[in-house]
């Protein structure tokens, strides 16, 4: 309860602010509509309800967004091109594939960097440089470029997700794999342990907390990568495409619905990684 109450308070405050802002932002258009319909002197409460029920409001209110999400998921066949559930699945699959690839690449690079001097000195600057390039610039090139050689659909989007999500994993895992203290490594030497044993019995378990911390960041930006990649290929579908077509057609409710769903998806994914982290920590005797 002590945790729920503050969150609930903030949530209620946001909703109040939101509904008030919607009245204010949608009022000019509502006034025009009412003048056209020759409605004069609409009482404030009725006017407020009108601003909360427009077709293409500047700022839709939460209940409009949630009912749009409900109608576009539960109210439609999954296979329908307008089903938000289908688009969410398209984005989710690219996110998950990209996240798995990115985590794998990140771990592999970190292992190379920690075990090989040349890799240590040569790779890191490139890895950092890769993240200074705006993803919005590189995503269309990758999607269009791969499309030209016949590679479309899931893979190009997953590659963009991977491109974003490998970075926190490399940085975190390099730190994690280097976290064992000198005497813990000396101990392994006194046992004449081979490099394989040093890795699996010392470096890897020592790095696990960092792995989970960076995977939490990685999965969230994987989703962003997938959405950004979708903007470059409107035919492929996904939440990014719903955002794009929504903004072309002034369908603000549709934009917000896709936005909410993307945010909710990210929250669920981060929570799943967090749960996995808790499970692994409990098995490794980390103090609660």
């Amino acid at each position: 309860m002590s945790r729920v109450l503050p969150i609930l308070t903030i949530l209620i405050a946001i909703f109040i602010f939101w509904y008030a802002a919607a009245i204010w932002m949608n009022a000019p258009w509502q006034t025009i509509l009412n003048e056209r319909a020759n409605l004069a002197d609409v009482p404030f409460f009725e006017f407020a309800q009108q601003t909360w029920a427009q077709d293409k409001p500047i700022l839709p209110v939460p209940h409009q967004v949630f009912s749009e999400i409900w109608n576009a998921t539960m109210g439609l066949e999954f296979t329908s091109r307008r089903s938000l559930a289908l688009h969410a699945w398209i984005t989710l699959s690219a996110t998950l594939l990209g996240f798995v690839l990115g985590t794998g690449l990140g771990v592999a690079l970190a292992v190379a960097i920690v075990h090989n001097d040349a890799a240590d000195r040569s790779l890191m600057p490139w890895i950092i440089a890769s993240q200074t390039i705006p993803i919005l610039a590189i995503a269309p090139m990758v999607v269009v470029g791969l499309g030209a050689i016949g590679l479309t659909g899931l893979v190009p989007k997953a590659l963009i997700s991977m491109y974003l999500s490998f970075f926190p994993v490399v940085v975190g895992m390099v730190k994690g794999l280097r976290s064992p203290e000198a005497i813990q490594l000396d101990l392994m030497r006194t046992y004449d342990a081979n490099p394989w044993q040093v890795f699996w019995k010392l470096r890897w378990p020592a790095a696990l907390p960092m792995l989970f911390a960076s995977m939490k960041v990685g999965i969230a930006i994987s989703l962003i990568g997938a959405v950004v990649a979708e903007l470059s290929n409107a035919a492929g579908g996904g939440l990014g495409v719903r955002l794009l077509t929504g903004s072309y057609n002034g369908q603000t409710i549709q934009i917000w619905a896709a936005l909410f769903l993307a945010a909710g998806l990210a929250a669920v994914l981060v929570a799943i990684v967090g749960a996995a982290e808790k499970w692994v920590n409990a098995r490794n005797g980390v103090r609660a």
Binding site: I183, D186, D192, A193, Q197, K201, L202, A206, L208, N284
Partner: peptide
């Protein structure tokens, strides 16, 4: 030889018996 360091240098993710098992596993 067996070496005892200034600090215990136990691996925090292993129980006491698993720590003692470490050289035996290796």
């Amino acid at each position: 030889y067996g070496y005892v360091f200034q600090a215990p240098a136990l691996y925090p993710w292993r129980t006491i018996e698993k720590n003692i098992a470490l050289p035996l596993e290796i």
